[in-house]
């Protein structure tokens, strides 16, 4: 059996002595901080799941969703997407999350990896639309 992760999937390895910081970095690993982290994980994973779904179902990228690593490059190497795929992703960002790039440059810089796309959705998207659509 391979070794366990550092922390349990649902809670990690609690070390209350280490923390006395802000709401995320502490305080002392209390339930409020853990709850906020859990919410952020859930939000992030839902967006990531939706983006993976777009790649596999709409762009017909021949991989299982779990093979799409979040920091892998989308264009060039990595997933090897092209400009037509980029258009599909732009449409998804707008329709699902209301996330619209204001400039071509901004958009280009926001399409480097799935994680960068997630960052873009979280910073440019409509939170209400995101909440409504992320589980789709």
């Amino acid at each position: 059996m391979h070794d366990e992760g550092y922390g349990a999937v649902t809670g990690g390895t609690r070390n209350g002595d280490a923390m006395d910081g802000d709401a995320v970095n502490g305080p002392r690993g209390d339930d409020a901080a853990s709850g906020e982290i859990a919410r952020r994980i859930e939000r992030r994973e839902r967006i990531l799941g939706r983006l993976r779904e777009v790649l596999v179902r709409q762009l017909q990228y021949r991989r299982e969703p779990d093979e799409l690593d979040p920091d892998a490059p989308l264009f060039g190497s990595g997933f090897g997407l092209d400009s037509l795929d980029a258009v599909e992703i732009v449409v998804c960002l707008e329709t699902d999350y209301g996330a619209r790039a204001s400039e071509h440059e901004l958009l280009r810089g926001s399409m480097r990896s799935l994680n960068v796309l997630c960052d873009f959705v979280l910073s440019h998207g409509d939170p209400k639309r995101a909440v409504k659509n992320v589980g789709a």
Partner: peptide, 29 residues
């Protein structure tokens, strides 16, 4: 090397060797 559920960017600042820091996971590149 981070447990997958905690490997996402944007979850918060990290403590390094028990010390509070501003370190954080960031998206690549």
């Amino acid at each position: 090397l981070v447990d997958v559920p905690y490997s996402h960017p944007g979850l918060g600042t990290l403590a390094i060797d028990g010390r509070r820091t501003q370190a954080r996971v960031v998206s690549a590149p």
